[in-house]
Computed example of a mutant assay.
Amino acid sequence: MRDSRLRRPAVVPDIVSGTVELTTTPPLVQRPSGIGYAKEHPADRDRRGVLWLRVASNPDGARGRPEFGRVHPLRQRRVMRRHLCQICSRPASRTALGTLWLIEDHRGEGPDWPEGCATVHPPLCVACAEVSVRLCPHLRDGWAAVRAQDPQIQGVYGQRYTPGLLAPRAQGPGVVRYDTHQAAWVLAASQSITLYDCTLVDLP
């Protein structure tokens, strides 16, 4: 009898990394201006100068089996920047109210929520959103469908560092805004977007 654990999942988000898409991050070096790699490539930093995890490139497009707990940094940046669906990579749903996001439900944070909230989860099309609310682990404790007319990429999520005696010291992961000093001391893994002009909506 075939083990069901070996079956390929029915839905695999495009931003999920595969088993052959390994991170190959070299040791970090410490500079007066922040962290870096001893031998950096142009693709190691984004347009705003933040250092990113390196990911092995597979010219044949092979990804291996999906690892749902690991987001692919380059694909996450691409769909976030272009407002593509994080699952199918087609254009995310957009109406007069804005682009569609699914986020954890934090309505208890105040009457203005979700205005100005930040998320590392890219937008979705309606069809993939309907699948996500049934299958996505990070939505199991409650979710909200939000349309944002003015989403702005303002930071990254990654491992934060501070200057050490001989090498940078890790301070734990978190979201860092581009307009802060900490941006020079973070090793980014995902892009963070802030949602403005928000409307809570129902899924069809």
Rank of each mutant, 00 (worst) to 15 (best):
A148V: 03
L187V: 14
Y157M: 02
Q171D: 14
G142C: 14
A129I: 01
L124Q: 14
R169T: 14
A145P: 00
C117Q: 11
P151T: 05
V120G: 14
C117S: 07
P151C: 04
A170Q: 05
W143G: 03
V186A: 11
P123R: 09
D141W: 11
D150P: 05
D150W: 07
R134N: 06
L124H: 13
S132P: 05
A144R: 13
G174C: 03
P123N: 08
V120P: 12
G116S: 06
R140K: 10
Q154G: 10
Q171K: 14
A118C: 05
L165K: 12
Q149D: 09
V176K: 12
V186H: 09
E130R: 15
V146K: 03
A127D: 15
D150C: 04
R140M: 11
T180D: 10
G164W: 01
L166N: 04
T180M: 07
C125Y: 01
G142N: 12
A148H: 04
R169W: 01
V175S: 10
Q149A: 15
R140P: 04
V175K: 12
V175A: 10
A184S: 14
Y161N: 01
C117L: 12
R169N: 09
R147L: 08
R160V: 07
V186R: 11
P137D: 05
T180H: 08
A183F: 13
G142T: 12
A170K: 02
V186M: 09
A167M: 07
T119F: 06
Q159W: 09
A118Q: 09
V156C: 09
P173V: 10
L165N: 06
A170I: 01
R177G: 09
V133F: 00
Q154K: 02
C125Q: 05
C125S: 08
Q152C: 11
Q159F: 04
A145V: 06
H121R: 07
V156D: 07
P168I: 00
V175D: 09
L187M: 15
S132N: 12
